[in-house]
Design a protein around this nucleic acid. Structure first.
Length: 112
DNA sequence: AATTTGACGAAGC
DNA sequence: GGCTTCGCCAAAT
């Protein structure tokens, strides 16, 4: 298992209830800014054996990225259960629910 | 070992 | 706002 993969798993497991993270965010936190696709792979392959809250992961537009209708519906259900409002299309308000790695004083860094 | 793939993201049209 | 192209790199084949 590559360090990147391990970090991604760890990050996903650390997502609090009622919040969501984007693939890009996770990849960035894991160390690869362009690793969103690896996050996809990891989630797809590893959510099964790990206990990953995959339903708290959405794409950059705040939409449910999943393609399977049933799984998509399930994700919407879980998010609603946790208090995340989702549209019928399955998109959430990232500005409200996006989990951000806080700097402590609320200072927001647009880039790094 | 080589090639394809993929629940994505940003940039370009 | 939508569609296409390119980049990215681990996992699957």
């Amino acid at each position: 298992m590559q360090p990147f993969t391990h970090r991604v798993i760890n990050i996903i497991k650390a997502i609090p209830e009622g919040t969501v993270m984007t693939y890009g965010q996770i990849a960035e936190q894991a160390g690869s800014r362009r690793g969103a696709r690896q996050v996809v792979r990891i989630l797809h392959s590893l959510s099964d054996i790990h206990q990953l809250p995959w339903h708290r992961v959405v794409n950059a537009k705040g939409e449910i990225a999943i393609r399977d209708e049933e799984a998509r519906d399930m994700q919407v259900f879980y998010l609603n259960q946790e208090g995340v409002e989702t549209s019928e299309d399955g998109h959430v308000d990232l500005d409200k629910y996006r989990h951000r790695c806080e700097a402590g004083d609320g200072h927001f860094y647009p880039f790094e």
